[in-house]
Design a protein around this nucleic acid. Structure first.
Lengths: 120, 120
DNA sequence: TCCTTGAATTGACGTTCATCGAATCAGGCG
DNA sequence: CGCCTGATTCGATGAACGTCAATTCAAGGA
């Protein structure tokens, strides 16, 4: 399920915000990523996955960390998945998620205020 | 108008996402900032202001860059302002906006995937 | 084969959000 | 003072979003 990188994630994006104005297209592209992170539950999911041992976490672990129903967690994971921030991988009964570090790094680079370029 | 930094922006935030799981409070706090950037218009506003000569831009310039009405631009600027990403400063007839580089830098640091710490 | 457990999908409901037109506020100038 | 221009606020409307209960799907084990 969803092994490949969504297109949106790959060409995201551009020079640092403070360097030159974003084009309309770049802004739309970036907004999808920021929208995916614009929710406390998804931010915690992201950090739970990213900081988990082995760089991956099973849905069962994630669900326990919240006071929310399974379907809701599943929904948020889908949003993160479709934005290209994470990938899911079924192994037997369980599904494991891991983050795409390059995408996170790209976003980090876009927000950079110093002249530094972050090579992914 | 709104010269001081909103509280939300100042203690945002924390170790990199990949280092350790965010607390509920940290996630809520960060989500406000990401929500403010989760819109193409606001991203372009932010980059227009940040990359403008002298680090500031007048609302009149900003409005011209979009196919949107004045009130709509004003609304987006308010969202950015209340999130702590920018400040507005009235000088005579015109209002000039500039970004808070520290806040952007903080966000960038949170998304960092390498072990690097970015000192603001 | 059937049943059980983990995860995703569907459909519905209430809330939040982007956008606009109209009205209002803030300064400068005649 | 009265007007004009730039910017914000207010109120309304339609779309997008977060959440849940119920259902469906996937993979193992009896």
């Amino acid at each position: 399920m969803s092994k490949q990188l969504p297109i949106v994630a790959m060409n995201a994006c551009c020079a640092p915000l403070s360097r030159e104005p974003l084009t309309q297209d770049q802004a739309v592209e970036l907004s999808h990523l920021f929208k995916a992170m614009a929710d406390p539950v998804r931010l915690r999911l992201l950090s739970l996955i990213a900081s988990h041992d082995g760089g991956e976490a099973c849905v069962c672990d994630l669900t326990d960390a919240f006071d929310l129903t399974g379907p809701t967690i599943s929904h948020h994971l889908k949003v993160l998945r479709e934005s290209g921030l994470i990938t899911g991988d079924r192994r037997g009964t369980w599904v494991y998620y891991r983050v795409h570090p390059e995408v996170l790094a790209r976003l980090s680079a876009v927000l950079t205020t110093t002249g530094e370029a972050v090579t992914a």
